[in-house]
Design a protein around this nucleic acid. Structure first.
Lengths: 226, 226
DNA sequence: ATTGACTTCCTTACAATGTAAGCCTACTCT
DNA sequence: AGAGTAGGCTTACATTGTAAGGAAGTCAAT
């Protein structure tokens, strides 16, 4: 009896002496799984397997799969650094970069965000902190709304493009050539021009466009400060 | 026999005297279905039902569901007007507005575009035409790339936000209050400020932010012209 | 120490999905 | 007339989310 109670409350000894399952562990594993294998390979059964548990056991920690997805997105927001300091431009730039990094690390997140509409705790906190940063660094309430919408739209939209266009690594030229070949029957003079003069010229990385656009957007945002 | 051949080639008389099924009809019905009932209610079985046909019959016109989704997206691009005229700013603004209209008409399209990466015929044509417009109205090849990326990122990103934020109709105040209530335990001073001073002040429609940001983006794009 | 509530796991079961395999029939072409 | 094909149908299977309920352990109160 003394021995029996040596273990913490919820320790189980049943099949395998595994660590107690918690909501956080479930969400974390789900994130890891989606990161590693993609969103469509994340099923309750497979997630359970990874945690050494049957699928239905997960429902003790998460009401259903969409709630799990919401929690996963919230986790991503938790990873996103919030802007700090007094320099509005530096702060916003950092936030944009952090946002992009987080959403690239978790490629599934954009897709999930898009379909769900229930922001979680960390998400809300992140928004509040960013709004606070804007207010603090000289934006009126109105301007804050415009600035936030513009900046966020740009970052999210760029990420969306990045996921579609396959020009972000060394294989860009091949892919570009492939697309042209595939539609060889159609007249595509301008696409061909862009491909040959920019993409195939070498050294083109679509990811570099991010900074170009970001600077322009930040200029625009700056103009909103009274 | 003379009577028999009165009908066009593929007319069937079998169970119901329905019109011949074509790939276009399938895609069109799929788009209509997704528009009306949402992407997740679009299944091959339900689509077949709508067309008076069993699910497997659809596979004679479309190789698989993902190809169908690709075709649906392509259809949306086909609806998107391409920029025309000599005025770069007017042309780009029109295109952005058309793009937004098309993607709002077909709320599922963004989500599908995000997961697929194989552009179709109409999509490629649209890109080519837009690139052509930029080149024609005074953008260098390089500047064209930057301008296109920036503008598209903004429009897509804004749409993504629009789908998340539920502030685009008269219920905005209720929703805003609901979010604050739900997280009442957390300190959210800046969100509360924004809600009370902007959203709850009445007359706030997030959709209006589109034009504000678009003008700023167009200013920025204009700066890219030589 | 016994009881009863509660947690956390499991098993079983069901409906819905995409789609492979193969059959049937009417039309087209020779 | 006979062969080939196109386009429909039926059947079947693996995979999904999850409802329902059962078993075993832990805890609080008696």
């Amino acid at each position: 009896m003394a021995e029996r109670n040596r273990m913490p409350n919820r320790a189980r000894r049943s099949p395998a002496d595994r660590a107690p399952l918690t909501r956080e562990a479930v969400v974390e594993a789900a994130v890891a799984m989606a990161d590693a294998e993609g969103l469509d390979r994340l099923s309750m059964r497979r997630l359970g397997e990874r945690l050494g548990v049957e699928a239905m056991s997960l429902y003790h920690h998460v009401p259903n799969k969409t709630a799990l997805l919401d929690a996963m997105v919230d986790q991503v927001f938790a990873e996103m650094a919030v802007p700090q300091g007094d320099d509005w431009r530096a702060g916003l730039r950092e936030r944009a970069v952090a946002q992009r990094a987080a959403l690239r690390r978790h490629g599934w997140a954009l897709a999930v965000m898009e379909s769900r509409a229930t922001p979680g705790y960390e998400t809300i906190r992140h928004h509040d902190a960013t709004l606070g940063f804007l207010r603090r660094t000289g934006f009126t309430v109105r301007a804050t709304g415009h600035a936030y919408a513009l900046l966020d739209a740009y970052v999210m939209g760029f990420l969306l493009q990045e996921q579609q266009l396959p020009f972000d690594d060394a294989s860009a030229p091949d892919v570009a050539a492939g697309i042209l070949d595939q539609h060889a029957a159609v007249e595509l003079p301008h696409l061909a021009e862009f491909m040959s003069e920019v993409v195939l010229a070498g050294g083109y990385d679509f990811a570099d466009e991010f900074d170009v656009g970001l600077d322009l957007v930040l200029d625009a945002v700056g103009g909103l400060r009274t």
